[in-house]
């Protein structure tokens, strides 16, 4: 198998694992982390696409630049999302701790 296949399969595996966590784990912070991982796996997949779309000029391999550009944009978006989510988790904890006992768990699930 070629490397891109391995990377693709790896990305698929991570996507599966992190989707599982996002859906099953009731803790907000875990969800955020799992979501972050999910995003990263998708970007790995984009990297695979870049390699597959690439070619060779004068013997020098190059990758398709568009997916790479998409990765960079996506990273910024994912970063912003994570920051926002973590800020919300923090505020949620603060707000809950202000009103309730300290040992209550903060959940966003029903």
């Amino acid at each position: 198998m070629v490397a891109s296949t391995w990377f693709g399969l790896g990305a698929a595996l991570i996507i599966g694992l992190s989707l599982f966590q996002v859906i099953i784990n009731p803790e907000p912070l875990r969800k955020v982390l799992a979501f972050n991982l999910l995003g990263s796996a998708v970007f790995v997949l984009f990297g695979v696409l870049a390699r597959r779309g690439g070619g060779r000029i004068d013997g020098v391999a190059f990758a398709d630049p568009v997916p790479q550009a998409l990765i960079i944009t996506g990273l910024v978006v994912a970063f912003a999302a994570t920051v926002l989510a973590v800020a919300l988790v923090l505020r949620l904890l603060q707000a809950e701790c202000a009103t309730q006992d300290h040992d209550t768990e903060c959940r966003i699930d029903d």
Binding site: A81, A85, L88, L92
Partner: peptide, 8 residues
């Protein structure tokens, strides 16, 4: 909580 749920 609602906002976090919405975001995620």
């Amino acid at each position: 909580a609602a906002a976090l749920r919405y975001l995620l």
